[in-house]
Design a binder for these strands. Structure first.
Lengths: 224, 224
DNA sequence: GCGCCATGTCACAGTTTCATGACAGAACGC
DNA sequence: GCGTTCTGTCATGAAACTGTGACATGGCGC
């Protein structure tokens, strides 16, 4: 469900948590260092970050501070120590929650869901389909982590298609939804624009993975 | 400092917590039952509620649910039991945090402050993005340590953009938020003001690092 | 295989959008 | 009252966007 960024240097703990969270239905990407994690935040825009405090190099609290400057990403800090001072420092650094290891997967899941629910009013809504990530709040589209520049019309078209995944939308509908209704229905306008979007988001535009042509009817967005 | 509503039926715990929180500089009102607490929320609008889960009559989780219906008040649940199930139920009920008794006053204080900070629109009164530091309390902006003078309108615009980091805000929204709604939507007013802010905070206004133009939609503040 | 028609492809010029700087009225402090 | 600062508007030019049509391609029925 959620795109979770996990940072934990101990391989056994990392794989255990990754497995548990994946079982709860989350999509997890994990790293051992804060630097990698920050790159991931910049490029992949996860929904929530879970950071171990004790990390080689940049520690979790510092990663948390930097993440905070990048985005409104919620952050959970994870520590093996029950030291009260850590709690204070961590929360002061802007963490949303603080969990002491070892943690019950179910508890961690509940905390993640609570924080996501709380954040969802403020957070931007983003959806991803395979490599393709669409951030409706930031109006950004990334493909395999690389930002794709779409022009306004292209973006509106893509958003409209994505709003109805799996459904065939005909040209008349798209003309109304994306353009104003002043355009004639028989132009190559929609085709040309679909073409432009494909050129940007499809790995092989000739064999589209996202936007499929339904001959005689229109176009359908269906994730791979 | 903060107006805290404390609900705890055990008189000795109640007075101890009240004393500790008062020492930390908070203003505390405490009750033994949930019904009284709900009246208090309705009449006095506290800033945060700390609820014991085990209460005679209506329990803390139920009080939490009802408070949630009344107001956006942040809630911390307090329990003597470390039972994981309680954590799940409590967080599902919409609590912002969950603290197990006995709790160090300093830890509780840190959690209160963290939640209040998060509640007061997601940040403390001073944030920095790279070289740029914005002090919302003092209404001052510094760039690389040097103070930048922004006019009132420019400052309101920057604060509005910064309130939603990473989000694209369109001109209509900004006109409403920063100016009053008496202005026409198609004016270049927003552009001009953004331009002025850029001239002051961007090292190279032609290649902005902080305030990005999203052609056809609006502007986005995203730190470097 | 053939022809037809729907769709893909592409280049280009008109249009739109935005940055920039100038300016004058409004607001403000002295 | 007077000078200064602030702010909304406008003109201008540059850059980006987009609709269009001509043509190519490919699927489909026959």
């Amino acid at each position: 469900m959620a795109g979770i960024l996990l940072v934990e240097d101990d391989p056994s703990v990392r794989t255990a948590l990754e497995l548990a969270l994946t079982r709860q239905g989350h999509s997890v990407t994990s790293y051992a260092t804060g630097e990698e994690a920050l790159d991931h935040v910049r490029s992949r825009r996860p929904e929530i970050a879970i950071l171990d405090v004790m990390l080689p190099g940049m520690d979790g609290v510092e990663v948390c501070r930097r993440i905070r400057r990048l985005d409104q990403l919620p952050v959970i800090l994870l520590t093996a120590r029950g030291d009260d001072l850590d709690v204070v420092v961590g929360l002061e650094a802007g963490a949303d929650d603080y969990v002491v290891k070892p943690v019950e997967p179910r508890v961690l899941d509940a905390r993640i869901r609570a924080i996501l629910r709380r954040a969802e009013s403020a957070a931007s809504d983003r959806i991803s389909f395979g490599d393709l990530m669409i951030d409706r709040g930031a109006l950004k589209v990334t493909l395999a982590g690389k930002e794709i520049h779409l022009t306004p019309t292209e973006l509106r078209l893509l958003l409209e298609l994505v709003r109805h995944p799996g459904q065939v939308l005909n040209r008349r509908y798209l003309l109304r939804a994306v353009w104003d209704h002043t355009h004639v229905a028989d132009s190559r306008l929609v085709d040309a624009c679909v073409q432009r979007v494909r050129a940007k988001i499809e790995p092989r535009p000739a064999e589209p993975v996202f936007i499929h042509t339904v001959r005689g009817f229109g176009y359908r967005f269906s994730p791979p």
